[in-house]
């Protein structure tokens, strides 16, 4: 087939298809690759550098999430250089962020052997924002993966309420020109919350339950249903507390053909009528 070719991964031949990224090939070949910023439905931000690989002929390491596979490429993931860079990325993040609600980040850091105490210094303190009824923003947990910006922007929502502001260590996510969310262009679809990998963005109910020490995923059933607000047919996953029969969160499957995991404000947050009807 013309659109299929081989590339070498750690000396072994792997099949790549035209248009695939190196990361796509790595995953199919079951080469474990840490990732933070990349997301199946978003443009690769190539910002976290967790997925870097050593590409023959390239001076610096390249982000496998972004770089398209090309015939004849020789990629190494098992070299000390790659492992050191990946470990370094996690060690730097651990030195600045609160990762208490980022289990995937913590697990990947551990499997790379990252030392959380390698670097000391100023923590990333961008503050906790509680300015609306639907979700909270705890930017001390933000790793600036750009997922929320992309979901809010051209990849999903085309609302452009969120952007990156500031430079260097002081860079952070901002709504509009440093406005509160209600004063910004935000339409509260919550798609930024859906893609946030660290819990920096969190639905209000989940945040309340967590701060009361009452968030316990083992107690929740996931109920599939179809959103009843309009005719689009978005699939919803209602996360329901088995004991109290309360909905604690609404999501949509990332692989659903209509939503691709994304919803509007009504589907994601307009569920209290269900509980009202139960009385």
């Amino acid at each position: 087939m013309a659109d299929t070719f081989g590339i070498l991964i750690d000396g072994r031949e792997a099949i790549a298809h035209e248009g695939e990224t190196i990361l796509d090939v790595l995953r199919r070949a079951q080469v474990e690759t840490p990732t933070l910023c990349t997301h199946e439905h978003l443009t690769p931000a190539k910002a976290c550098r967790a997925c870097v690989v050593d590409l023959k002929g390239s001076r610096a390491l390249v982000a496998s999430c972004e770089r398209k596979a090309e015939p004849g490429m020789e990629v190494r993931t098992d070299s000390e250089r790659v492992q050191n860079a990946r470990r370094g990325v996690f060690e730097l993040l651990l030195s600045q962020n609160d990762v208490s609600t980022a289990p995937s980040l913590a697990a990947q850091a551990e499997s790379l052997g990252a030392d959380p105490d390698r670097y000391s210094g100023r923590r990333y303190e961008k503050g906790f924002f509680d300015d609306n009824q639907l979700y909270v923003r705890d930017y001390d947990k933000c790793i600036l993966c750009y997922r929320c910006v992309e979901a809010c922007g051209p990849d999903v929502q085309n609302t452009f309420a969120l952007t990156v502001a500031g430079r260097g260590f002081n860079a952070g996510i901002a709504a509009g020109f440093g406005e509160t969310l209600p004063d910004s262009a935000c339409v509260f679809c919550g798609n930024c919350v859906a893609v946030c990998p660290t819990g920096a963005l969190m639905d209000r109910r989940e945040h309340s339950l967590r701060s009361e020490g009452r968030w316990d995923e083992s107690r929740y059933d996931v109920v599939q249903t179809t959103c009843s607000y309009c005719g689009v047919g978005c699939q919803l996953e209602l996360h329901v507390d088995r004991a109290s029969n309360e909905i604690v969160k609404v999501t949509s499957p990332m692989d659903h053909s209509i939503t691709q995991g994304f919803l509007c404000v009504k589907g994601r947050y307009g569920y209290s009528f269900v509980e009202a009807g139960a009385e």
């Binding site: 550098r49 730097l92 210094g121 990156v164 260097g168 860079a171």
Partner: peptide, 21 residues
């Protein structure tokens, strides 16, 4: 460098800060 890093990628954003410290 810490002041001029754009802040896009982790090695530079956090690294230039840690280096300066």
């Amino acid at each position: 460098f810490a002041h001029e890093s754009c802040g896009q990628c982790v090695p530079c954003r956090v690294g230039t800060r840690r280096q300066h410290e």
